[in-house]
Nucleic acid binder design. Structure first.
Length: 207
DNA sequence: TGCCAGGCCCTCTTTAGGGCCTT
């Protein structure tokens, strides 16, 4: 499998559609060897961060006032992504902010984001829940930093993604795990993952 | 502190409701 980029946004709230803005973004590149590239920046979108979210993330309005403009950061992010496939934890959330911020600078939003939460619900159905923090503990991955900061969350999502790929490869004795297989898994019925992988394996590597 | 949204997923479902997950 080639390189993939894991992205994570911190924001002023939950809804880009209702005017919330990104406050920080991070992206990490992975290949079969692990994390091979990192991008992180605070970003100023001109919207105040509510106290609850400041407490959650540790990102204050003072920090944002000194940050580069959102438009500038999004152009840097696009350059960093460079057209590679994207992954995020609860991808619908990050995709919403990615699209909204790119729309503000007249750029098209990449499509087809893969979702580590959807895949995790199928690979680790026994986990207590499927929050990033819980999955990191469940998969016995060492935390790389403070949760709810973009770079740490992107790094930990990356390590979780790599771990899930490896688990699939081992559990199903696959020569490799492709993006197409991950895409199929995340849309398969939760109780039919084994059937989905077996069908894929028969088609791609016929006996 | 937890609501705000939206899509997914499960079930005591499908003519629906509620929990999960992201900030």
């Amino acid at each position: 499998m080639g390189e993939r980029v894991i992205i994570d946004f911190e924001t002023t709230g939950l809804s880009a559609m209702q005017g919330d803005r990104a406050t920080e973004v991070a992206a990490v590149v992975i290949d079969e060897t692990g994390i091979v590239g990192r991008f992180q920046s605070l970003m100023n979108g001109g919207r105040r961060i509510p106290p609850f979210v400041q407490d959650l993330t540790g990102i204050s309005n003072a920090m944002i006032r000194q940050a580069p403009r959102a438009e500038e950061v999004m152009r840097q992010l696009l350059d960093f992504i460079a057209g590679r496939p994207l992954v995020a934890h609860n991808a619908a959330f990050d995709h919403g902010f990615l699209g909204a911020e790119l729309d503000r600078i007249g750029e098209a939003c990449p499509t087809g984001l893969l979702c580590s939460m959807k895949v995790a619900r199928r690979i680790y159905p026994e986990a207590p829940n499927h929050r990033l923090e819980t999955l990191i503990r469940h998969a016995r991955i060492e935390a790389t930093g403070q949760y709810h900061r973009a770079l740490a969350d992107a790094e930990m999502t990356a390590l979780l993604w790599l771990r899930m790929e490896r688990k699939l490869q081992n559990d199903f004795d696959l020569p490799e795990v492709s993006l197409e297989l991950m895409q199929r898994i995340q849309t398969a019925p939760c109780k039919a993952v084994d059937k989905c992988v077996a069908s894929f394996k028969r088609r791609v590597w016929p006996a």
